[in-house]
Each structure stands twice: as structure tokens, then as C-alpha cells.
Nucleic acid binder design. Structure first.
Lengths: 210, 210
DNA sequence: TCTAGGCTGTCGATCGATCGATCGACCACG
DNA sequence: CGTGGTCGATCGATCGATCGACAGCCTAGA
């Protein structure tokens, strides 16, 4: 039986997760695979081990639950990206670090990222605006890495349009990792990130490997 | 007023499209924006200018309609890709041509490609198998362009794993065009394809522009 | 220490709305 | 007078969401 420090406020790592966490887990799994509209309240409840009525003790509407998952995922991504930005002043090296980060997150947490990337269309009004604003804030970090590279002799980005094109291409290419990467495959996670960083640098025309 | 050749069998370009075409158009628009489960039969009927009952005179089930859209889109893509393959023997030039083709199709027909790319998850059983088989057949064309490039001194693809990684990266990057490209933007379609071909060649490490 | 009262969490039952799909009737046209 | 196309009405099922009931537990006051 596991010993627990009396002063330990966090739950034991092997403890049964509480209802809120189970709901989150179920929604992540089902929204990512079946989609928001393809997932029913009762299906969600069964997966979480609760009745559909109990679900509503923890969440607002089904849409509120989706928005919470999306904002949570994007908040995490933004925090990580802004941390990279803060500690890597050189735009080219920062770009490579952002690629590694984006690839790692999409490979390790495909459900979170797929919900964010694929289910924005089901939102509208203020909820959609809020999520889109977060996504824009994340992409702004990429902009602040790519835009200063325009005219940099180390790369081949002729103008702002080329930088915008490269930004979209890189984001889509790295986001796509969530569509096909399987953790049980032969490719290790770190190698995946390095390979994508190398492809990204070549894509923007970087000559030296460094 | 446009003159029409009397022997012309195709419908006049400005004629009212028939019901089947209107259904197809409505389904394309709604499935691409709202998703399959987010689109109701009545919504579909209203968009097509019909009653929901009349819909069933033309289609089988709602799922049959989706499968028809998907197979139609994939058949077109496969035919175009195999035509490129037939007339371009050099793998590197063929890869560039495939990139141009994929980008053009995703920019010009974002609804078709988005339905194919995003809605596979709602299918299961035989229908899913059939669509996945078509998608695999399309990607096989890409495999047959990239795999022979392994070890080719013109590019930097060390082994089969690198080729597979590049294939996925390129497909995702070019597919993503359907997510953001707008025909009314400043970027012309041909320039878009050329830019992506250039990025693709750099991504695989091609040195010469030719 | 005992107990009354109020939270917290859970559920079965059920609400009105909408879902995908079907039916028989009707209409225009050949 | 049959056939292809269209529709209103309606089917049973399922949808998202709500309700009242109640069990367990914590705490305050006797």
C-alpha cells in the first residue's frame, strides 16, 4: 500500500481520479474521435462512469465543456511557447525550438490538440471569438519568430508574404503529427521533434545545420 | 446572351442546376463547415431547396451521401495524381508536380477536400474501409515519388523512415492550404502552388532549384 | 457525545425538441 | 394512364437538459 506524506496536498498518483477528471478524460477521448456533435451526453456519462444528470453537476452545457477543454489546451500551448520565446532571443533558433515544442505536444497529447484544431467550427459567437483569440495569440509567437527572419542571410525568406506562407506551412505540417503519430511506433518522440526541426529549417532555406 | 451549340449535351452553364446537383452542393457546403453530425437532414433539404422527403428520392441514407462525396473527391484526386505520375518519370520533378496538384486542388476545392480529410472519422465498417483504401491509393502515388529519392544525391533523404516522415509532413502542409486559403486574397493560385513546390523541395533537401 | 441541519454528490425519471427516415397522396407530363 | 418527382405528415429514437429525491458527510449547538 502506498505511503503518503501527511502534508501532501495532491492526490495520490495511483488514486481513483475524481469525477471531474474522469469527465474531462471521457470528453477528450470522445470529442477527439467522434467529434462534438457525434458524442452524446449519455455516451459521455457512461465513459466517465456517471449518470447523465450528474454530468451537469460539474459542467455547464456540453458546449461549455468543449470550450473548457479548448481553452485549457491552448493556455498550456501558449505558456510553453511564450517560455520558449523568453529564453531564446535568436529567431532562427527560436523557430526550431517552437517546432520541437509543437511537434512534441501534438505527438504526446493528440486528443487535446485535435479537439482544439478540429472542433473550432462547432462554436460561434463569443465562445468562438475567445478560442480564436487564444489561437491567434499562440500563432503570434510564431509570427514573432518568423517575421524577423525576412532578409536574414541565413534563410531564404524574401518578404513578409513568404514568411506568412512558411508559417502556415510549418504549423500545418507540425499539427499533422497528431493525425498519424502513434506512441508505440518505432520512432521515438525526441527523434520526431529533431527530424521536424531539421525539415523546418530546410523549408525556410536555412543553410547551416546550426 | 451566350450562344449554344445545338449538339451540346452538357447543361447550359447558367441553367438552374438539377436537384441532384443542388443536393450535392448543399451537402458539400454544410458537411465542410458544420460537419456530418452537425448537419441535419432538414437543414440539408432547405439549402438544396427541397423537402426532406424528396432528399431520399435521390440518396440512400445520409451516410451514403457522405460516402458518395468522399469517393467522388478521392477518385478525382487519384486520377489527377496518377496522370502526373504517368507523364513525369523523374521522382523529384514528379514530387514537385504532386505538390502543385495537391495545393491547387485544396485551394480550389476546399469543401471537397475538407470533407474527405475531416469526416473520415464518422464512418465505420465497410464504408470506412473503402474510403481509407482510396486515400491509401492516393498516398501510394506520393510513396512512389518519395521512396526512389532515398539515397539520391540531389536530396537529403537518408533512409525510408526519412522519406515516410517527409511524405507525411508534405501531405499535411499542403492539405492545410484548404484551412486558410481564400480565393479573394492577394496570393494568386499559381503562385501558391509554386511557393509550396519550392518549400517542398527545400524540405527534402533539394539543392538545385531544378 | 449526541443530534439537527445543511451541503455535496448522485441518480431515475422525464421534459420538449429534434433527429434520420418512411409513408401515402398528389401533380405534371408523356 | 403510368411514371418520375415532390411534399406534408408522421414514425420511433435519441438528443441536451432539468427536476425532485435522497444518501452520506461535515459542522454547530445542546
Amino acid at each position: 500500500m502506498p505511503r503518503r506524506t501527511p502534508a501532501e496536498p495532491e492526490p495520490a498518483p495511483d488514486a481513483e481520479p475524481d469525477a471531474a477528471a474522469r469527465i474531462r478524460e471521457a470528453a477528450l477521448e470522445l470529442f477527439a474521435t467522434r467529434g462534438f456533435h457525434g458524442t452524446g451526453i449519455r455516451q459521455l456519462a457512461e465513459r466517465a462512469g456517471l449518470s447523465s444528470a450528474t454530468l451537469y453537476h460539474y459542467m455547464g452545457t456540453k458546449e461549455d465543456l468543449l470550450v473548457a477543454l479548448m481553452t485549457g489546451g491552448l493556455d498550456r500551448l501558449i505558456a510553453l511557447a511564450e517560455a520558449v520565446e523568453a529564453e531564446e532571443p535568436d529567431p532562427l533558433r527560436r523557430l526550431a525550438a517552437l517546432v520541437r515544442l509543437h511537434v512534441r505536444e501534438h505527438a504526446e497529447r493528440p486528443r487535446e490538440t485535435r479537439v482544439v484544431d478540429d472542433q473550432i467550427g462547432v462554436l460561434d459567437g463569443a465562445a468562438r471569438d475567445a478560442v480564436v483569440a487564444l489561437r491567434d495569440r499562440y500563432e503570434d509567437v510564431w509570427r514573432r519568430a518568423l517575421d524577423p527572419l525576412v532578409g536574414d542571410p541565413r534563410v531564404a525568406l524574401a518578404d513578409a508574404a513568404a514568411a506568412a506562407l512558411a508559417r502556415r506551412a510549418l504549423l500545418e505540417m507540425c499539427t499533422g503529427v497528431a493525425h498519424w503519430y502513434r506512441a508505440d511506433g518505432a520512432l521515438r518522440l525526441e527523434a520526431l521533434g529533431e527530424a521536424h526541426a531539421a525539415m523546418a529549417l530546410r523549408l525556410v532555406g536555412a543553410t547551416s545545420p546550426r
